[in-house]
Every structure is written in structure tokens, then in C-alpha cells.
Measured scan of single mutants.
Amino acid sequence: TSSHKLRLYERDDYRGLMSELTDDCACVPELFRLPEIYSLHVLEGCWVLYEMPNYRGRQYLLRPGDYRRYHDWGGADAKVGSLRRVTDL
């Protein structure tokens, strides 16, 4: 099985509160109590970021690497509604 891990930060450049995720999350704002995510670091696996909860809205593919600001993943703003692991490519 492949492993997945990413870290979410409330501010750009990996500042502020950090939360780690290793499984799908249908509602990021509810789980982490963060209305917006300004940076993230994908440590393992690929993920799909959705701008709205319950895997809706615009989708962004996140490969392992650094995303210091939301425009690094192509986002128009810092809204992160849900995240899902990519298990098949």
C-alpha cells in the first residue's frame, strides 16, 4: 500500500498553526478549525485538493513538494474545502 502525508499551514511560508493529514478529509475547515490554508507541504503520495467541502468545486492535483503560497498549487484563493488521496494514477 502507498502512504500519504501532507501538512497544512494557516499562513504562507509554513507559518502559523500546522496540521498533518494522512487520510481523506471531506471538510478541512471543520476538522482543523482553519477557515483558510495558505501553504502546504506534501511529504508522501499525491493528493487532490478541492476548493469546497465534500470533494466539490475546483480540483488541484498536488504532487510531493512545497506549496509556499496558494497560487503555487494554482488556487485563486486560500480556500481548501476537502482533500482526497490519489490511490490510482
Rank of each mutant, 00 (worst) to 15 (best):
L89R: 15
E51F: 00
P29H: 08
T22N: 06
R58L: 01
I37W: 13
Y70H: 12
S19N: 15
P35F: 06
V80R: 01
C25W: 07
E44P: 04
E36K: 15
G74P: 04
V80W: 08
R63D: 04
T1Q: 13
E10P: 06
V28C: 09
M52N: 11
Y9S: 02
T22E: 14
E10N: 07
D77S: 10
S39P: 04
Y60E: 08
G75W: 01
L40H: 00
G45M: 01
H41A: 10
L17Q: 14
V28E: 04
A76V: 14
G75M: 00
D72Q: 08
Y14W: 07
R84N: 00
K79Q: 10
Y50C: 00
E20S: 01
A78W: 08
G75R: 03
R69Y: 14
L61E: 14
L83I: 14
Y60V: 10
V48M: 15
K79F: 15
W73P: 04
E20A: 06
R11M: 14
S2H: 09
H4M: 01
G65L: 02
I37E: 15
R7T: 06
Y50K: 01
R33I: 05
M52Q: 14
P35C: 10
R63N: 10
S2F: 11
G65K: 07
L43I: 15
E20M: 05
M52F: 14
P29T: 10
E10L: 08
D13K: 10
R85Q: 00
P64I: 00
N54P: 01
C46Y: 08
L21E: 00
C25T: 05
A26T: 10
D13T: 08
L83M: 07
R69S: 13
Y38I: 12
D72P: 02
Y9R: 03
A76D: 08
R68C: 03
F32H: 09
R11P: 04
R15D: 10
C25P: 00
K79G: 06
D66G: 11
R33A: 12
R33T: 14
V42M: 04
L31E: 10
V86R: 05
K5A: 06
D13A: 07
L43D: 09
L43R: 05
T22L: 07
R69Q: 15
Y60I: 08
R7V: 09
A78P: 13
G75Q: 06
S19W: 10
T1C: 15
W73Q: 05
R84T: 06
L21T: 04
I37D: 15
P64T: 03
L61G: 13
V42D: 02
N54M: 08
T22D: 08
Y14G: 08
G16I: 01
D88N: 15
T22A: 13
V28F: 04
R33V: 10
L61S: 12
R58G: 06
W73E: 05
T87C: 09
A76E: 14
H41Q: 10
L34C: 13
D88I: 05
I37N: 13
D77L: 08
D12S: 13
R58A: 09
E44Q: 10
F32E: 14
L83C: 13
P64R: 02
C46V: 05
G75F: 04
Y55D: 01
G57S: 03
M52E: 14
D77K: 13
L34F: 15
D88L: 05
D72S: 08
K79W: 03
S19D: 10
R63W: 04
I37R: 11
H4Y: 14
I37G: 12
D72K: 12
R7A: 04
Y60A: 05
M18C: 14
R63E: 13
G65N: 01
S82Y: 06
T87A: 12
L8H: 03
E44I: 04
M52H: 14
G65Y: 07
Y67I: 03
R85W: 01
R69L: 07
S39W: 06
S39D: 01
S3V: 05
Y38T: 10
G65M: 00
A76F: 06
L6N: 03
Y70K: 11
G65P: 05
M18N: 12
D72F: 06
R33F: 11
A78S: 07
K79T: 10
H4K: 01
L31M: 11
R84A: 09
D66L: 10
S2Y: 11
L17H: 14
C25A: 05
K79N: 09
Y67V: 07
G45F: 02
A76I: 14
H4N: 08
T87R: 11
C27R: 07
L34Y: 10
V80C: 13
V28L: 10
Y55T: 03
D77A: 10
E36D: 15
Y14F: 11
S39E: 01
D13H: 13
R11G: 11
M52K: 15
W73T: 08
L43Q: 11
D12P: 10
